[in-house]
Design a protein around this nucleic acid. Sequence first.
DNA 1: GTATATCGTAAGCGCGCGTAGATTATCTGT
DNA 2: ACAGATAATCTACGCGCGCTTACGATATAC
Lengths: 138, 138
Amino acid sequence: MDRPELGFLLSRLMREVMAREKPILEAAGLEMWDYAVLTALADSAAPTQAQLAATTGRDKTRLIGNLDRLEAEGMVARRPDPADRRNRIVSLTPAGSRVLRRCREAIEAMETELLADLDPADRAGFERALTSLAETDR
Amino acid sequence: MDRPELGFLLSRLMREVMAREKPILEAAGLEMWDYAVLTALADSAAPTQAQLAATTGRDKTRLIGNLDRLEAEGMVARRPDPADRRNRIVSLTPAGSRVLRRCREAIEAMETELLADLDPADRAGFERALTSLAETDR
DNA sequence: GTATATCGTAAGCGCGCGTAGATTATCTGT
DNA sequence: ACAGATAATCTACGCGCGCTTACGATATAC
Protein backbone atom coordinates (compact mmCIF):
# COMPACT_ATOMS: atom_id res chain seq x y z
CA MET A 1 0.00 0.00 0.00
CA ASP A 2 1.18 3.45 -0.73
CA ARG A 3 0.91 5.62 2.35
CA PRO A 4 2.97 7.85 4.57
CA GLU A 5 5.21 6.05 7.00
CA LEU A 6 3.87 4.34 10.06
CA GLY A 7 5.82 6.58 12.38
CA PHE A 8 4.24 9.73 11.03
CA LEU A 9 0.74 8.34 10.96
CA LEU A 10 1.06 6.97 14.46
CA SER A 11 2.47 10.13 15.93
CA ARG A 12 -0.27 12.22 14.40
CA LEU A 13 -3.01 9.95 15.65
CA MET A 14 -1.31 9.72 19.01
CA ARG A 15 -1.33 13.48 19.38
CA GLU A 16 -5.00 13.57 18.52
CA VAL A 17 -5.90 10.89 21.04
CA MET A 18 -3.81 12.55 23.74
CA ALA A 19 -5.43 15.90 23.07
CA ARG A 20 -8.86 14.36 23.51
CA GLU A 21 -7.96 12.43 26.63
CA LYS A 22 -6.32 15.30 28.41
CA PRO A 23 -9.46 17.28 29.32
CA ILE A 24 -11.16 14.12 30.51
CA LEU A 25 -8.33 13.25 32.86
CA GLU A 26 -7.88 16.82 34.03
CA ALA A 27 -11.53 16.89 35.03
CA ALA A 28 -10.78 13.92 37.28
CA GLY A 29 -7.60 15.49 38.64
CA LEU A 30 -5.39 12.89 37.00
CA GLU A 31 -2.24 13.08 34.94
CA MET A 32 -1.63 10.69 32.08
CA TRP A 33 0.68 8.57 34.17
CA ASP A 34 -1.77 8.46 37.04
CA TYR A 35 -4.33 7.04 34.70
CA ALA A 36 -1.90 4.47 33.36
CA VAL A 37 -1.15 3.41 36.92
CA LEU A 38 -4.80 3.10 37.89
CA THR A 39 -5.52 1.11 34.76
CA ALA A 40 -2.66 -1.26 35.46
CA LEU A 41 -4.10 -1.87 38.91
CA ALA A 42 -7.64 -2.42 37.70
CA ASP A 43 -7.46 -6.18 37.37
CA SER A 44 -5.17 -6.96 40.27
CA ALA A 45 -2.82 -5.30 42.71
CA ALA A 46 0.86 -4.96 41.89
CA PRO A 47 3.12 -7.10 44.09
CA THR A 48 5.97 -4.56 43.93
CA GLN A 49 6.38 -1.00 42.74
CA ALA A 50 9.19 -2.10 40.47
CA GLN A 51 6.84 -4.47 38.69
CA LEU A 52 4.18 -1.80 38.43
CA ALA A 53 6.78 0.46 36.87
CA ALA A 54 7.66 -2.25 34.38
CA THR A 55 4.10 -2.97 33.33
CA THR A 56 3.22 0.70 32.92
CA GLY A 57 6.52 1.63 31.29
CA ARG A 58 7.06 4.35 33.87
CA ASP A 59 10.53 4.86 35.32
CA LYS A 60 10.51 3.37 38.79
CA THR A 61 11.86 6.45 40.53
CA ARG A 62 9.32 8.65 38.78
CA LEU A 63 6.50 6.30 39.68
CA ILE A 64 7.04 7.15 43.35
CA GLY A 65 5.72 10.67 42.93
CA ASN A 66 2.59 9.47 41.18
CA LEU A 67 1.92 6.93 43.92
CA ASP A 68 2.53 9.54 46.61
CA ARG A 69 -0.15 11.76 45.19
CA LEU A 70 -2.59 8.99 44.33
CA GLU A 71 -2.18 7.61 47.83
CA ALA A 72 -2.67 11.04 49.40
CA GLU A 73 -5.89 11.40 47.46
CA GLY A 74 -7.05 7.99 48.57
CA MET A 75 -7.13 6.36 45.16
CA VAL A 76 -4.39 3.88 45.84
CA ALA A 77 -3.04 1.99 48.84
CA ARG A 78 0.54 0.97 49.53
CA ARG A 79 1.01 -1.74 52.13
CA PRO A 80 4.10 -3.78 52.94
CA ASP A 81 4.00 -7.36 51.75
CA PRO A 82 3.79 -9.48 54.92
CA ALA A 83 5.85 -12.19 53.25
CA ASP A 84 8.64 -9.77 52.28
CA ARG A 85 8.41 -6.42 53.92
CA ARG A 86 10.75 -4.77 51.42
CA ASN A 87 7.97 -4.94 48.85
CA ARG A 88 5.01 -2.61 48.79
CA ILE A 89 1.82 -4.09 47.43
CA VAL A 90 0.01 -1.39 45.49
CA SER A 91 -3.72 -1.71 45.10
CA LEU A 92 -6.72 0.31 44.03
CA THR A 93 -9.03 1.68 46.70
CA PRO A 94 -12.78 1.80 46.12
CA ALA A 95 -12.44 5.54 45.49
CA GLY A 96 -9.69 4.94 42.96
CA SER A 97 -11.80 2.31 41.32
CA ARG A 98 -14.67 4.75 40.96
CA VAL A 99 -12.50 7.46 39.44
CA LEU A 100 -10.99 4.95 37.06
CA ARG A 101 -14.36 3.68 35.91
CA ARG A 102 -15.66 7.17 35.26
CA CYS A 103 -12.62 8.11 33.19
CA ARG A 104 -12.68 4.86 31.34
CA GLU A 105 -16.26 5.38 30.28
CA ALA A 106 -15.60 8.89 29.06
CA ILE A 107 -12.55 7.78 27.14
CA GLU A 108 -14.35 4.90 25.53
CA ALA A 109 -17.05 7.28 24.39
CA MET A 110 -14.39 9.56 22.96
CA GLU A 111 -12.83 6.65 21.10
CA THR A 112 -16.14 5.54 19.71
CA GLU A 113 -16.67 9.01 18.33
CA LEU A 114 -13.17 9.18 16.92
CA LEU A 115 -13.61 5.88 15.07
CA ALA A 116 -17.19 6.54 14.03
CA ASP A 117 -16.46 7.62 10.48
CA LEU A 118 -14.45 4.56 9.58
CA ASP A 119 -15.71 1.81 7.37
CA PRO A 120 -16.85 -0.86 9.86
CA ALA A 121 -14.66 -3.55 8.32
CA ASP A 122 -11.64 -1.27 8.34
CA ARG A 123 -12.32 -0.36 11.91
CA ALA A 124 -12.51 -3.99 12.99
CA GLY A 125 -9.30 -4.78 11.13
CA PHE A 126 -7.67 -1.71 12.63
CA GLU A 127 -8.52 -2.75 16.15
CA ARG A 128 -7.46 -6.34 15.66
CA ALA A 129 -4.20 -5.39 13.99
CA LEU A 130 -3.39 -2.72 16.55
CA THR A 131 -4.05 -5.07 19.44
CA SER A 132 -1.88 -7.70 17.88
CA LEU A 133 0.94 -5.29 17.04
CA ALA A 134 0.97 -3.78 20.50
CA GLU A 135 1.83 -7.19 21.87
CA THR A 136 4.92 -7.36 19.69
CA ASP A 137 7.47 -6.70 22.38
CA ARG A 138 10.37 -7.78 20.28
CA MET B 1 -14.83 -4.63 20.64
CA ASP B 2 -13.18 -5.37 23.90
CA ARG B 3 -9.59 -4.23 23.91
CA PRO B 4 -7.19 -2.04 25.85
CA GLU B 5 -7.53 1.65 25.22
CA LEU B 6 -6.33 3.25 22.04
CA GLY B 7 -3.83 5.41 23.87
CA PHE B 8 -2.06 2.46 25.41
CA LEU B 9 -2.01 0.42 22.23
CA LEU B 10 -0.77 3.35 20.21
CA SER B 11 1.96 4.29 22.62
CA ARG B 12 3.23 0.74 22.77
CA LEU B 13 3.31 0.38 19.02
CA MET B 14 4.83 3.82 18.70
CA ARG B 15 7.68 2.87 20.98
CA GLU B 16 8.28 -0.29 18.98
CA VAL B 17 8.37 1.56 15.68
CA MET B 18 10.65 4.25 17.09
CA ALA B 19 13.01 1.64 18.48
CA ARG B 20 13.27 0.02 15.07
CA GLU B 21 13.72 3.27 13.20
CA LYS B 22 16.38 4.66 15.46
CA PRO B 23 19.27 2.43 14.35
CA ILE B 24 18.39 3.02 10.71
CA LEU B 25 18.49 6.78 11.10
CA GLU B 26 21.59 6.69 13.27
CA ALA B 27 23.39 4.78 10.55
CA ALA B 28 22.60 7.67 8.23
CA GLY B 29 23.62 10.27 10.79
CA LEU B 30 20.10 11.59 11.18
CA GLU B 31 17.95 12.42 14.15
CA MET B 32 14.22 11.78 14.10
CA TRP B 33 13.47 15.42 13.39
CA ASP B 34 16.02 15.55 10.61
CA TYR B 35 14.25 12.71 8.93
CA ALA B 36 10.87 14.36 9.34
CA VAL B 37 12.28 17.49 7.74
CA LEU B 38 13.80 15.65 4.79
CA THR B 39 10.56 13.78 4.25
CA ALA B 40 8.56 17.00 4.28
CA LEU B 41 10.86 18.38 1.59
CA ALA B 42 10.72 15.30 -0.58
CA ASP B 43 7.88 16.42 -2.80
CA SER B 44 8.59 20.12 -2.97
CA ALA B 45 10.67 22.79 -1.31
CA ALA B 46 9.28 24.77 1.63
CA PRO B 47 8.61 28.44 0.85
CA THR B 48 9.42 29.54 4.41
CA GLN B 49 10.93 27.92 7.46
CA ALA B 50 7.84 28.78 9.45
CA GLN B 51 5.74 26.78 7.06
CA LEU B 52 8.16 23.87 7.19
CA ALA B 53 7.91 23.99 10.96
CA ALA B 54 4.14 23.89 10.74
CA THR B 55 3.99 20.93 8.38
CA THR B 56 6.49 18.89 10.39
CA GLY B 57 5.06 19.88 13.77
CA ARG B 58 8.47 21.08 14.91
CA ASP B 59 8.74 24.30 16.88
CA LYS B 60 10.06 26.94 14.49
CA THR B 61 12.90 28.05 16.72
CA ARG B 62 14.00 24.46 17.24
CA LEU B 63 13.87 23.75 13.55
CA ILE B 64 16.74 26.16 13.00
CA GLY B 65 19.28 23.87 14.60
CA ASN B 66 18.19 20.94 12.46
CA LEU B 67 18.46 23.01 9.33
CA ASP B 68 21.87 24.32 10.36
CA ARG B 69 23.24 20.82 10.64
CA LEU B 70 21.48 19.45 7.58
CA GLU B 71 22.74 22.40 5.58
CA ALA B 72 26.29 21.98 6.89
CA GLU B 73 26.19 18.35 5.79
CA GLY B 74 24.94 19.33 2.38
CA MET B 75 21.57 17.63 2.58
CA VAL B 76 19.51 20.77 2.47
CA ALA B 77 19.82 24.24 0.95
CA ARG B 78 18.53 27.52 2.34
CA ARG B 79 18.29 30.38 -0.12
CA PRO B 80 16.54 33.72 0.26
CA ASP B 81 13.32 34.05 -1.67
CA PRO B 82 14.05 36.64 -4.41
CA ALA B 83 10.48 37.87 -4.20
CA ASP B 84 10.66 38.43 -0.43
CA ARG B 85 14.12 38.26 0.98
CA ARG B 86 12.89 37.75 4.54
CA ASN B 87 11.88 34.22 3.58
CA ARG B 88 14.27 31.33 3.20
CA ILE B 89 13.30 28.71 0.67
CA VAL B 90 14.37 25.33 2.01
CA SER B 91 14.98 22.56 -0.48
CA LEU B 92 16.53 19.12 -0.69
CA THR B 93 19.94 18.77 -2.33
CA PRO B 94 20.74 15.72 -4.45
CA ALA B 95 22.79 14.38 -1.55
CA GLY B 96 19.89 14.89 0.84
CA SER B 97 17.61 13.20 -1.61
CA ARG B 98 19.88 10.18 -1.74
CA VAL B 99 20.11 9.87 2.03
CA LEU B 100 16.35 10.20 2.30
CA ARG B 101 15.72 7.52 -0.27
CA ARG B 102 18.07 5.08 1.41
CA CYS B 103 16.46 5.60 4.81
CA ARG B 104 13.00 5.40 3.37
CA GLU B 105 13.73 2.04 1.77
CA ALA B 106 15.16 0.62 4.97
CA ILE B 107 12.22 1.87 6.98
CA GLU B 108 9.70 0.47 4.54
CA ALA B 109 11.42 -2.89 4.76
CA MET B 110 11.24 -2.69 8.53
CA GLU B 111 7.55 -1.88 8.37
CA THR B 112 6.85 -4.73 6.02
CA GLU B 113 8.51 -7.09 8.46
CA LEU B 114 6.65 -5.62 11.40
CA LEU B 115 3.30 -6.09 9.68
CA ALA B 116 4.14 -9.46 8.16
CA ASP B 117 2.33 -11.59 10.72
CA LEU B 118 -0.98 -9.82 10.38
CA ASP B 119 -3.95 -11.26 8.62
CA PRO B 120 -3.83 -9.59 5.19
CA ALA B 121 -7.34 -8.23 5.45
CA ASP B 122 -6.67 -6.84 8.92
CA ARG B 123 -3.50 -5.29 7.67
CA ALA B 124 -5.25 -3.58 4.78
CA GLY B 125 -7.97 -2.31 7.10
CA PHE B 126 -5.36 -1.16 9.58
CA GLU B 127 -3.50 0.86 6.98
CA ARG B 128 -6.64 2.41 5.54
CA ALA B 129 -8.04 3.28 8.95
CA LEU B 130 -4.76 4.67 10.21
CA THR B 131 -4.30 6.82 7.14
CA SER B 132 -7.80 8.14 7.46
CA LEU B 133 -7.53 8.80 11.20
CA ALA B 134 -4.22 10.59 10.86
CA GLU B 135 -5.94 13.14 8.68
CA THR B 136 -8.41 13.93 11.45
CA ASP B 137 -6.98 17.25 12.50
CA ARG B 138 -9.96 18.17 14.58
C1' DG C 1 9.63 58.71 5.17
C1' DT C 2 8.00 56.94 8.95
C1' DA C 3 5.33 53.51 11.46
C1' DT C 4 3.91 48.70 11.52
C1' DA C 5 4.34 43.88 10.56
C1' DT C 6 6.84 39.58 9.31
C1' DC C 7 10.84 36.27 8.95
C1' DG C 8 14.79 34.08 10.73
C1' DT C 9 17.74 33.88 14.64
C1' DA C 10 19.64 33.75 19.46
C1' DA C 11 19.04 33.19 24.32
C1' DG C 12 16.66 31.83 28.33
C1' DC C 13 12.57 29.93 30.89
C1' DG C 14 10.38 25.83 33.28
C1' DC C 15 8.93 21.19 32.32
C1' DG C 16 9.12 16.08 32.25
C1' DC C 17 12.06 12.56 30.95
C1' DG C 18 15.52 8.57 31.88
C1' DT C 19 19.65 7.60 34.51
C1' DA C 20 22.94 7.17 38.32
C1' DG C 21 24.53 7.18 43.16
C1' DA C 22 23.72 6.97 47.93
C1' DT C 23 20.77 5.56 51.83
C1' DT C 24 17.81 2.67 54.60
C1' DA C 25 15.21 -1.40 55.50
C1' DT C 26 14.82 -6.04 54.67
C1' DC C 27 15.64 -10.71 53.01
C1' DT C 28 18.74 -14.79 51.66
C1' DG C 29 22.79 -17.87 51.54
C1' DT C 30 26.38 -19.73 54.10
C1' DA D 1 26.14 -14.17 62.82
C1' DC D 2 27.59 -12.04 58.82
C1' DA D 3 28.04 -10.82 53.76
C1' DG D 4 25.69 -9.84 49.86
C1' DA D 5 21.45 -8.97 47.22
C1' DT D 6 17.06 -6.49 46.61
C1' DA D 7 13.09 -2.83 47.23
C1' DA D 8 11.80 1.75 47.94
C1' DT D 9 13.32 6.35 48.36
C1' DC D 10 15.88 10.79 47.65
C1' DT D 11 18.91 13.83 45.20
C1' DA D 12 20.95 15.48 41.26
C1' DC D 13 22.52 15.21 36.87
C1' DG D 14 21.95 16.31 31.52
C1' DC D 15 18.69 16.10 27.78
C1' DG D 16 15.06 17.64 24.51
C1' DC D 17 10.82 19.74 24.56
C1' DG D 18 7.57 23.85 23.75
C1' DC D 19 7.26 28.69 24.85
C1' DT D 20 8.63 33.55 25.35
C1' DT D 21 11.37 37.63 24.55
C1' DA D 22 14.48 40.42 21.95
C1' DC D 23 16.84 41.87 17.81
C1' DG D 24 18.18 42.79 12.95
C1' DA D 25 16.80 42.54 8.23
C1' DT D 26 13.21 43.24 5.17
C1' DA D 27 8.59 44.25 3.32
C1' DT D 28 4.26 46.86 3.41
C1' DA D 29 0.85 50.70 4.60
C1' DC D 30 -0.05 55.36 5.11
